[in-house]
Write a protein that binds this DNA or RNA. Structure first.
Length: 273
DNA sequence: ATGGTAGCGCTGCTA
């Protein structure tokens, strides 16, 4: 199966790029982040997806954030929008839509958009760290509930796990995305039973960057970061399941040409049953 | 070079 996660940076601005990508690559599941629209606005473009055979679940409430899952698989149901037990997708100033989970056959597919954090020490950074704690709690609960399911958590984590995941670690002194605090939250999540598939299976010597700033010709200069991740967890109940990564790669062609997102899609070819 | 660019929605915020 082909799995893709892509921060599209506005689904309205990127609709043709996204539908063209689906036509050409036919991923079984596409997780999107930063759709930047409300559920009602998404309805006006739903037919663009259904025409290609995709079912789409969208979770958005305003001009920022917003996540979605599109799939060709027919045995699919939405299992969670936002976090449980609190007013979900909590943000500093408003409710934000950053988490959606669907069951696709025997897989729970999660599309997540972790808060940016803006600056170390800011209220937004505190929110980012709290959000990562809530993500771990919610995933633990879901893994208990769907204990016979594989879990693939994909999205824009706004965290570069390793120093080698940024173009120049020296340039990130005192910056978000590489701080000890957020990396520790990610480690906590991984230690609860997830594998960073790029770290496990990425091509040796390839950077794995998925994001390049629009400014300062960052893409051309190779100034990128690996912040879009695919995390896998096997079923809690270990009965005759298997999962193997055939290949994981970044489709850089989508960061080129006319009006690209500032993120490229992270693609995963994997077999599971 | 404490700049730079893109998107949203209408003035400045978010990334």
């Amino acid at each position: 199966m082909l799995f893709v996660t892509w921060n599209v940076n506005s689904l309205r601005a990127r609709l043709v790029r996204v539908t063209s990508f689906l036509e050409r690559n036919k991923p079984d599941i596409l997780c999107m982040q930063e759709t930047k629209m409300q559920n009602g606005q998404f309805e006006s473009m739903r037919s663009e997806f259904t025409a290609l055979g995709y079912s789409v679940f969208h979770h958005g409430n305003g001009p920022w954030n917003g996540v979605a899952i599109a799939t060709l698989v027919k045995d699919v149901e939405i299992v969670q929008r936002g976090f449980q037990g609190q007013d979900p997708d909590f943000g500093v100033d408003r409710k934000e839509c950053r988490f959606i989970a669907a069951r696709v056959n025997s897989l729970i597919s999660v599309s997540a958009y972790i808060p940016n954090g803006r600056e170390l020490g800011s209220i937004h950074m505190e929110n980012k760290l709290a959000w990562l704690d809530a993500l771990k709690v919610n995933l633990e609960a879901l893994r208990e509930k769907y204990s016979n399911c594989h879990f693939l958590v994909e999205g824009d984590f706004n965290i570069a796990p390793l120093d080698s995941d940024v173009w120049d670690i020296a340039a990130f002194e005192g910056m978000t995305h590489v701080s000890e605090a957020e990396r520790e939250k990610l480690s906590n999540l991984l230690n609860s039973g997830f594998v960073d598939l790029w770290q496990e299976n990425g091509e040796v010597g390839k950077s794995g960057f998925t994001w390049w700033d629009y400014r300062s010709a960052s893409y051309k200069r190779g100034h990128g970061m690996r912040i879009d991740l695919a995390l896998y967890s096997p079923p809690l109940i270990h009965e005759n399941h298997s999962f193997s990564t055939e290949r994981i790669w970044v489709d850089r062609s989508e960061r080129e040409g006319e009006k690209p997102s500032d993120h490229a899609p992270l693609c995963l070819d994997a077999q599971l049953n």
